[in-house]
Design a protein around this nucleic acid. Structure first.
Lengths: 246, 246
DNA sequence: ACGGATAACTGGTCCAACCAGTTGACGGGT
DNA sequence: ACCCGTCAACTGGTTGGACCAGTTATCCGT
């Protein structure tokens, strides 16, 4: 290891493409509310001059913003900012975590956990109801793999994600599957949910096994209850005391 | 009306921009599975030649596909197709309806309705639990507006959407709000859910009023139950007989 | 004061060249 | 025969400038 430098660490200097950076800046500006809904963005030529990049880079960024539902570009007219609370889809959540200015991270995290519980419980119900035998077997296998990782928390977290993915897949509901993708992608951005309570959920191997058995047995109501109990542990005890500081 | 033409109707000839068309074609190709996951897409220059358009148009489309989670572009290497079932977010659902080849429309519709019921019920619960007085009043007002539209089904549908938006807003859960946006955007694409059963849900003014009252009174469990009952009507009676033909 | 031509915007598209990474094939060394 | 560095031939990334195609606001004539 000739290249190992003593004592000094380098952050991996921005390899982000120009249009990615433009996209990030504009997204943050819009989400943070620095433009009111309906306001026109500066023209592409102005933005290009302001950022010191070519207009094509601006255009790529704007197209992506439009697809996210943050702006509406229309030929001839100006590109106008939209009210993202009314027009943006769940995919925005993935990118929202990175902003942090406009949304309190704690609230966003609570929201994601609530949605996870809601979807996960219903997916477990549907899974118990209509998953095919192969899917049920895959779930049982995933749970065993999870149980086998038992001392290593990181491994367990990854295996836990895999278990839930199998369950959501088994539910046969495409919308749940895509929402699950959105939520996990966002959770990764947040930083692996370092809540203390989540550890308890993660360590409850018995509950995972019970859930897998209920699904395997086709007990819809039981599976839903077990899933909800498991997933709500991290949220249920939220108090009225206010938000924990991040 | 000098311009009214007798007997002949014109479809509004494609005003879609070039890059939009490219985006649509590539998206459909990927979602329909015409490229296996991991396969490289043709190079930007090849695609430009194939579509007979400029490379920049291709690039804009590819950037959007990447953001949807359908492909992964990397400098120097090829742009590779991803497994959208594992990497795409809920926003894909909005655009999925237009494909129709790969997913049976009936199944997709059922999935959306299931998710709607799941989110809606939990949002109602949270709304009853923690919405501020203004939000509760807004819900009651929206319900009255909905009730006032009572003969006109289209108006009622729009008002119904507004009611649920208020409820989801009142839940204070950003993830629910964004997911709601994704689902309604997709539903519009599907075509206003022309199910026969949905009409019953739409016409149940009394149930809407009851729901608003329960939320106003802060009865979380009651509101959740009422919302679930209302939203499940369109899905609950699904039979084992198979999918209705679109 | 009204209404239509118009000029000055806006975004949309193209071309052509070059920069910057990745990949694989080719050839010299061991 | 095998291994490894070199390099040419890809890939996407970026730039500049020109022009097309809509929208909008101004201004002039009635």
């Amino acid at each position: 290891m000739a290249g190992t430098l003593p004592g000094m660490t380098f952050e991996p200097l921005s390899r982000e493409s120009v249009s990615d950076q433009v996209f990030g800046r504009l997204r943050d500006a819009v989400v943070a509310g620095r433009y009111a809904a309906g306001d026109p963005l500066p023209s592409e030529r102005e933005l290009a001059a302001a950022f010191g990049v070519n207009r094509h880079a601006i255009r790529e960024a704007l197209r992506r913003l439009q697809q996210l539902g943050l702006v509406k570009v229309s030929q001839g007219g100006a590109t106008r900012v939209q009210d993202w609370r009314a027009t943006a889809g769940l995919d925005l959540a993935m990118t929202l975590a990175a902003v942090g200015d406009v949304l309190p991270l704690a609230t966003l995290n609570r929201d994601v956990l609530e949605m996870r519980a809601c979807i996960g419980a219903d997916a477990a119900r549907l899974c118990a109801e209509r998953a095919d035998p192969a899917a049920r077997a895959a779930i049982a296998a995933a749970v065993e793999e999870y149980a086998a990782a038992v001392p290593d928390l990181d491994l367990m977290a990854a295996a836990d994600l895999a278990v839930w993915r199998r369950i959501v897949e088994g539910s046969g509901n495409i919308a749940y599957l895509l929402a699950y993708n959105s939520l996990t992608a966002g959770a990764v951005a947040v930083g692996h949910m370092p809540q203390p309570r989540r550890t308890a959920e993660l360590l409850d191997v018995a509950a995972h096994r019970r859930l897998a058995e209920l699904i395997g047995a086709g007990d819809a109501a039981g599976a839903e209850g077990a899933a909800r109990a498991l997933l709500t542990a991290a949220v249920a005890t939220r108090s009225q005391m206010g938000n924990p500081r991040p």
